[in-house]
């Protein structure tokens, strides 16, 4: 098992849980009904912010869930396996975890990217330009890099990941987690 960023679920001990939601998907045929990703993201953001006038939180939460879910669907090697979304809401933060299973090649590419992303040498200023110049349509590490970068850089969220071997040497369990500030804290920082 390898972890990147501050993956450990410290929020639950630091801040009382105010709300929790878990969803599982199978089969992962969402590529054929792609709008389900956005529909799920919009549902979760509305569920989490219901009764609140937190428009920014709602928008950022939907954006983040959609991006993570799209990646999980695109890079799941076995569409008959589950993908999981786990959302926990706390006083000032929301944690989103998305888990899927990928093949060794995609897992290795992702590991390489995350190693660079969390290194001191990661060049924030040139990364975005290099990524969009590539034009997209590439593998997990590469295809998801722009999404991870924008979530981390644009929304002041904390990105982390855990990659675990499974019983099959060719299949890896991948969990990407992000922690977002809720609206009051977000607005205060901006």
């Amino acid at each position: 098992m390898v972890e990147y960023g501050n993956y450990k679920e410290t929020l639950t001990t630091k801040m009382p849980l105010t709300c929790e939601l878990k969803l599982s998907f199978r089969p992962l045929d969402l590529m054929n009904k792609w709008q389900r990703c956005g529909l799920t993201a919009d549902f979760i953001s509305q569920f989490e912010t219901i009764g609140q006038s937190h428009i920014r939180t709602k928008n950022v939460l939907s954006t983040a869930v959609n991006e993570l879910l799209e990646n999980a669907v695109k890079f799941s090697c076995d569409k008959t396996q589950h993908a999981h979304i786990h959302i926990t809401s706390h006083e000032t933060k929301i944690r989103i975890e998305v888990t899927n299973h990928s093949d060794k090649q995609d897992a290795d590419t992702l590991k390489k990217f995350l190693t660079v992303f969390f290194s001191k040498d990661f060049d924030v200023n040139t990364f975005f330009i290099k990524q969009v110049e590539k034009g997209g349509n590439v593998g997990y590490g590469e295809g998801s890099q722009l999404g991870f970068y924008t979530l981390s850089h644009n929304y002041q969220s904390q990105l982390s990941a855990r990659i675990t071997k499974t019983e099959s040497p060719e299949i890896y369990k991948i969990t990407i987690a992000i922690e977002l500030e809720k609206e009051s804290a977000y607005d205060h920082k901006n």
Binding site: G38, N59, S62, T63, N66, E67, E70, Q131, V132, E133, G135, G136, S144, L146, G147, T150
Partner: peptide
């Protein structure tokens, strides 16, 4: 909303 594929499309 715009996903990361859309960001690349705008860049194109």
């Amino acid at each position: 909303y715009l996903n990361s594929s859309g960001i690349t499309a705008f860049a194109n």
